[in-house]
């Protein structure tokens, strides 16, 4: 009795022949897949690790200075900018 194979199984079954016919092409394809997965994973891990290691450290250091100097508005806005005080009460 003839066995019916699904397309996926045909794909898998044909892989050795494919590899023999175009070895370079399959090697490159596998390399591309592995490269894409490794690149994605390692970058995500690096971002996560970097964020975890630094988590809020520079912001907290600046916050301590905000408390020492008693300043209400960060220096993101230049000196004299209306953000440093309500417009009606510029010192």
């Amino acid at each position: 009795m003839a066995e019916t194979l699904s397309a996926q199984e045909v794909t898998v079954a044909s892989l050795p022949t494919e590899r023999e016919l175009w070895p370079g092409s399959w090697r490159h394809a596998r390399f591309t897949v592995v490269g894409a997965l490794v690149l994605t994973g390692s970058i995500l891990m690096s971002i996560g690790l970097g964020g975890w290691l630094r988590s809020g450290r520079p912001e907290r250091a600046a916050a301590r200075w905000a408390a020492r100097l008693g300043i209400s508005t960060p220096a993101l806005w230049p000196a004299g900018d209306a953000m440093h005080y309500p417009p009606e009460s510029a010192p």
């Binding site: 600046a62 200075w65 300043i71 220096a75």
Partner: peptide, 9 residues
């Protein structure tokens, strides 16, 4: 570390 609080000051 104080720059975000007082830079041009």
């Amino acid at each position: 570390s104080a720059a975000p609080v007082l830079h041009d000051g």
